[in-house]
Amino acid sequence: MEIIALLIFCLFLAVFLGVVAHDLYKAKKTNTPFRVKNCIAGILMIAPAVILCFLFILLPMLFSLGYAFTDYNQMRPDEVHFVGFNNFKEIFKEIGSGGDMLYAIKNTAIFVVGVVPLQILLALGLALFCSRKVRGSSIFKVCFFAPVVISLTVTSYLWLTILDPSEDGLFNMLLGAFGIPQQQFLKDPKTAMLWVVLISAWQGCGYQMLIFISGLTNIREDLYEAAKLDGANAWQRFIRITVPGLKSSVLYITITVFIGACRIMVQPMLMIGPYSEGLTLSYYMFLQGTDYGLVGKSSAIALLMTIFIGLVTFVQKKVLSKK
């Protein structure tokens, strides 16, 4: 294991030093001391990030890729055997037999389909609301952004209290005041994931709101004025000026929200549990790797997820980049 890590590190170091030498050679060729100094300063500044990136992103990714084809058990790290595609076969067999993996795919799909449009639309709505030049809009910005900085665990427990299915739960108390019978919320398999969608969209949309606000400020004001003079109404101005102006923001936000949604784990883990309505791909992967110690299978799931997310992101980029 150590030898493989060392070999990968040497390869990575060779590539990095090659790039450094190439840059220095090019800088020296220009014969301007300023460029060489700049080049060295740049290399020194990115070096810590490059090392950290190698240690905590690239190396684990490469190891995970390798483990996907082994029977690596967390408790026996010194007895790892190559098993070819066995882990993948097992995963597909489990999907075919309607096991937990199928529930995980189904729940992740429900979450992604629900949260991506909802979160983007919420963020856009909030951005439009906050970008109006009215007094106190910065307070709203802070309020809408606040959930983003709160830990997922804290918000999960907060919502667990609010959605308590007993009559002591806040929502059930409110419903009771209007004569509506007690609801199960997160305990009802039919609605559990929908509540997770709503909670996640509420918590996450503040961040995308900021990106949309920054996109909105880049749209020239004179375009709106010209459109007004031409008699365009608010909806027409939004469709013809705002939406095209936010195209690059929408592309970035759609891709990042999609990737984040595919990795959903904390909320269903804390609010539902490892049941048919709560398992997601990341949660299932976590259970297999951490709780059961089956790192090989867990890595195979991770690899399949990466391939799927990569493909969808590629298609998204192609489709959304089109004029």
């Binding site: 048919s276 709780d291 059961y292």
Partner: peptide, 19 residues
């Protein structure tokens, strides 16, 4: 040997009782 998996399975069965 697979007690953690057993524990999760037991919880899943109990969770499914009303359903």
């Amino acid at each position: 040997v697979g007690y953690s998996v057993f524990s999760t399975t037991f919880n899943q069965i109990v969770h499914e009782l009303p359903r």
